[in-house]
């Protein structure tokens, strides 16, 4: 099985600090791939490189078997890669619909087609099981943390995306909402999308993922099938970069 999204040999530095070293990573259609690693391991940086927010210093991004160059968020969106960022990236002063279509507004001629955007947004939100909001014309500033998370996820699944990457989507959520988001993550994968889930919670990771990729200090320690490893092994990979015969060679 070939991965839908594959990166090879990614290097990324911020000035003198090299944050990613020769990172390889794959995500498969129909599967949830968990990306784990300690704080500062480089998970968000890797995701931003894939999303075209940061230019990569070296390495290749291969999408659907073809090497691609992602110059910016638009390129990533056109490929079908959608990212829910750790800091959500919503505009507080815009309403839910406006945020969901930001940068990709529907128009008829010169004019924004508000009505069709509103309909589509409502349909997408209907499909996600989350807490109620009063109106989808509500400003995002008036939403709770969980509701914002929902809007950010809805924004990612609104488009006919092939890869959805979620950077710690449950970090701000309560127990019930976390369960809902995890269920959603699973459902997205079951509909054939390649889902990448970044999380610090091992229980969540083992509950929904098919594969686990562990980053250690900017290096990919190992990418394994979830069924082949134990909690303890993954924790070891995260904290020391190796576990038995897995991990970075010494």
């Amino acid at each position: 099985m070939t991965p839908l999204l594959e990166v090879r040999g990614i290097d990324k530095s911020f000035g003198p600090v090299q944050v990613l070293h020769d990172v390889a990573f794959s995500a498969y259609a129909g599967e949830v791939t968990a990306l784990v690693g300690d704080n500062g391991a480089g998970k968000s940086t890797l995701v931003k490189c894939i999303g075209g927010i940061y230019p990569i210093d070296g390495g290749d991004i291969v999408f659907d078997g073809k090497p691609v160059i992602v110059h910016g968020p638009r390129d990533a969106g056109e490929l079908g890669i959608e990212i829910v960022y750790q800091d959500l990236a919503l505009c507080d002063n815009l309403d839910i619909v406006q945020n969901m279509f930001l940068g990709r507004e529907r128009r008829s001629g010169l004019v924004l087609d508000e009505d069709s955007m509103e309909e589509l947004a409502a349909q997408t939100l209907d499909g996600l099981s989350v807490r109620t909001v009063k109106s989808i014309r509500q400003q995002v500033s008036s939403l709770s943390g969980g509701q914002r998370q929902t809007v950010a996820i809805a924004k990612a699944v609104l488009w006919n995306s092939k890869v959805v990457i979620l950077d710690e989507p449950t970090a701000a959520l309560g127990v019930a909402q976390t369960a809902q988001v995890l269920e959603l993550v699973r459902r997205l994968a079951d509909t054939g999308l390649a889902v990448v889930l970044i999380s610090h919670n091992m229980n969540d990771v083992f509950a929904v993922s098919d594969r686990i990729a562990a980053l250690y200090l900017g290096r990919m320690a190992a990418q394994v099938k979830t069924a082949d490893v134990t909690h303890a092994q993954v924790v070891e990979l995260i904290t020391s970069g190796r576990s038995g015969d897995l991990g970075i060679a010494q």
Binding site: D126, L128, S129, V130, R131, W159, G192
Partner: peptide, 12 residues
């Protein structure tokens, strides 16, 4: 437009 919309779940 996406597959997700037919999925079950309570309405938001």
């Amino acid at each position: 437009m996406n597959k997700v919309k037919e999925l079950p779940g309570e309405a938001i």
